[in-house]
Design a protein around this nucleic acid. Structure first.
Lengths: 235, 235
DNA sequence: CGTACCGTTGAGCAGGCTCAACCGCTGTGG
DNA sequence: CCACAGCGGTTGAGCCTGCTCAACGGTACG
């Protein structure tokens, strides 16, 4: 049924129990191959809509590679982004048989696709696996709460800084002080609840103040960690 | 171990599958008594802190009755509210052995308290139950996303209107057009990312415009449903 | 009856949005 | 090879709305 992609689908999260400060792989190799058995793999080009808010929720997706955004289309034409999703993230768990928001690729994406009915069936027979999914969804819930904290701030500078910090923390490989910004200014703005211009201005200001330095449009280096953290914490 | 409270702990949510537009009870009576067996019941007065962000996550809670708020304490002294929780809601699922935000009662609250280790153990042996918790947490995730949509709006009027609409939808008993507002203006403001004054002004304006009418400070009647929905949808 | 808390209302300020022009890179076609 | 169009990003000018500070009103409780 499924072609293999690397080592099969995986889920990353911070478990409930103590000891782990960063996300780890949740699934055993047995569980991964079990999911691989009920999944198909998909390849999407950038910018492609995966599903639309309100449509029939037939499948759940696990990202193997690439970036996906979840968003809503509002009557005004605004398009707030609810979350960015990366490798080992799950999305598509709807309610009432319908997706609660739309999903679109940002980069090329390879992912696993599982029929909800099939997944539900599998989970109902494998408590261990169900708990792992529970853990993963809980993790995404805390991510959503963090997002809420960010957009609760009123100042653009603070929101953008927290956003950079979030990207840094989420980037699996903790590098020196270089933060990759894998999304456009517009996407960032829609995620932060700011105008595109406000994001641009905030980044410029951080640069002017010597707190960050650009290394290309999509990569940032933190020069003054102290002030950086101060702004991020300031609200 | 547990004194009985009514029919025992319960969870409400909208299931994954099609057909249900509103939340329903997820647990069978067998599951409810099973949870009751591993839970203790607690009574809290209003305004009492249940746990603090960052402290050891020993227990998970299920509300039987009353209202709880989840919040963060920020360095600035701001105190954004992440969620209001009502009967049949779960909270306290942390990460890494620590709670991710603080919890405090608003009204008198009766709730069930379950050791996380015990709950995890139970779920690992009962796939059916684990799936129900998965469903519940997913439901809370979509609630968090809805919250994000609300605070993404910039206008106070719109945020407050969406807030009222949310309270109306969540209120289990769908009454005429009367919406109970069970929280203070300050709590509402902290939830909406507005100042207390902005909330008050927005409510006043809705009243002045003949869209709503107050029936006491904590109860509102929608007079002009059309305009009400228009404002709520407008962003 | 006084006090305290919650809520409302007012005046002035600041920061983010809108509209709009401009820049730099990329890809395309003559 | 160069001209041009298109897109993402930056910068500027002016407006608007929500925040801050502050005073006042109403209701509950000792």
């Amino acid at each position: 049924m499924a072609e293999f992609l690397g080592t099969g689908p995986s889920l990353r999260a911070i478990p409930f129990g103590p000891g782990r400060k960063s996300a780890i792989e949740l699934l055993s190799s047995r569980q991964r191959s079990q999911i691989a058995r009920i999944a198909t793999s998909l390849q999407y080009p950038p910018g492609k809509v995966i599903y639309r808010e309100g449509s029939n929720a037939q499948s759940v997706f696990i990202i193997a590679n690439g970036i996906v955004k979840l968003f809503r289309d509002l009557p005004s034409g605004k398009r707030p982004i609810m979350a960015f999703l990366f490798a080992d993230d799950v999305f598509g768990l709807g309610q009432n048989g319908h997706y609660v928001n739309s999903a679109q690729t940002i980069t090329p994406v390879t992912m696993y696709c599982i029929r909800v009915a099939t997944l539900a069936d599998t989970l109902r027979h494998d408590a261990e696996l169900a708990v792992q999914f529970l853990c993963k969804v809980t993790h995404e819930l805390t991510g959503s709460l963090r997002h809420t904290v960010i957009v609760t701030r009123r100042d653009a500078l603070g929101r953008v800084t927290m956003f950079l910090r979030m990207l840094e923390q989420d980037s699996h490989r903790s590098q020196d002080s270089t933060i990759e910004v894998p999304v456009s200014r517009l996407d960032a703005a829609n995620y932060l609840g700011l105008s595109l211009e406000a994001v641009s201005r905030a980044l410029s200001q951080l640069e002017r103040d010597g707190i960050i330095a650009f290394e290309g449009r999509r990569s940032v280096r933190v020069l003054d960690r102290t002030r950086f953290e101060k702004i991020a914490a300031a609200l």
